[in-house]
Amino acid sequence: MKILHILKTLPEESVKKIIDEHKKDHDVDVVSLTDCKDYSTIVHLIENADKVMTW
């Protein structure tokens, strides 16, 4: 499963742990909205993900 995590702010420790757990069994991408302003890239990542989680 391909999972995309979209971060609106710096992640809390619990969020980091969830992302690390997902990385063990899944293909995981993480994008930070504070760093990435290329919205076409973000849309592309969303379209290709099986699951999208926002934090």
Rank of each mutant, 00 (worst) to 15 (best):
L4H: 02
Y39F: 14
D50E: 08
H44M: 08
D20P: 07
D50L: 05
E47A: 06
N48S: 10
S14P: 00
I42G: 09
T41H: 13
V15D: 13
M53N: 11
K8E: 13
D29W: 03
D29I: 04
D27A: 13
N48H: 10
H5Q: 07
K16P: 07
L7S: 04
I46S: 06
I3N: 10
C36G: 08
L33K: 02
I46G: 04
L10V: 06
S40W: 07
H26Q: 02
I46P: 06
E13L: 10
W55S: 07
V43W: 05
V28D: 09
M53H: 09
K8S: 15
E12D: 14
D50S: 13
H22Q: 15
H22G: 02
L7P: 05
L10G: 12
K8A: 15
N48Q: 10
I6M: 10
N48F: 08
K8Q: 15
S14T: 13
K16A: 08
H44L: 04
D38H: 02
D20R: 11
M1H: 12
I3E: 03
K37H: 13
V43M: 04
H26R: 05
D25I: 13
L10R: 10
C36T: 09
K16T: 01
E21N: 04
I18F: 05
E12P: 05
K8N: 15
H44D: 14
K17Y: 03
D35G: 09
I46T: 02
V52D: 02
P11G: 03
P11T: 01
C36Y: 00
K16R: 11
D20A: 14
E21L: 11
I6D: 05
L45F: 04
D29H: 03
V31Y: 01
K8T: 15
D27W: 02
H5G: 06
K51S: 06
K24C: 00
K51I: 07
E21H: 07
L7V: 10
E21C: 06
I46A: 03
S40H: 13
H5T: 03
K24G: 02
D29K: 13
K37V: 05
K51M: 10
T54W: 05
K16C: 07
K37S: 11
P11E: 10
A49Y: 00
D38F: 07
V52K: 08
S40C: 11
I6A: 05
D35L: 15
I19L: 05
S32Q: 02
I46H: 03
S40I: 14
E13K: 09
E12R: 09
H26N: 11
I18H: 06
D35W: 00
D35Y: 09
C36L: 09
K17R: 12
W55K: 00
N48K: 13
W55L: 04
V31K: 04
M53F: 12
H5Y: 15
W55R: 03
D25T: 15
N48E: 03
M1K: 14
I19S: 02
M1R: 14
E13Q: 12
